[in-house]
């Protein structure tokens, strides 16, 4: 089973932040107050879309072929994603 990074607090639905990082090699722990990178705040499907979009050299046409969707449908997904990223910006 692939674990997904939890993004929102199950109690108050606020964005979660990172408090500790662990090195799996030497077991060093870094404790602090870190914000998650903008892209990791997006849902898993959106992150996956961004990765595939970059791999397709930013071609909506190629993405449409890969996803077996029409060109405007993929462009609409991208438009929605742009809006979501804009909302994440302070």
């Amino acid at each position: 089973m692939k674990k997904q990074l939890p993004l929102y607090c199950p109690s108050c639905t606020h964005h979660l932040e990172v408090e500790a990082l662990v090195c799996k090699n030497c077991e060093t722990k870094v404790i602090g107050d870190f914000s998650l990178p903008k892209l990791t705040m997006l849902p898993y499907e959106d992150q996956n879309f961004i990765v595939e979009f970059v791999k397709a050299s930013g071609s909506i046409k190629l993405m449409a072929e890969q996803m077996k969707l029409s060109y405007p449908t993929v462009r609409n997904i991208l438009d929605d994603l742009i809006e979501k990223i804009k909302k994440l910006e302070p």
Binding site: K68, L69, S70, Y71, P72, T73
Partner: peptide, 11 residues
Amino acid sequence: PFHKIAGAKAL
């Protein structure tokens, strides 16, 4: 059908 078909194909 436009979720999957649009553009030149739909035309």
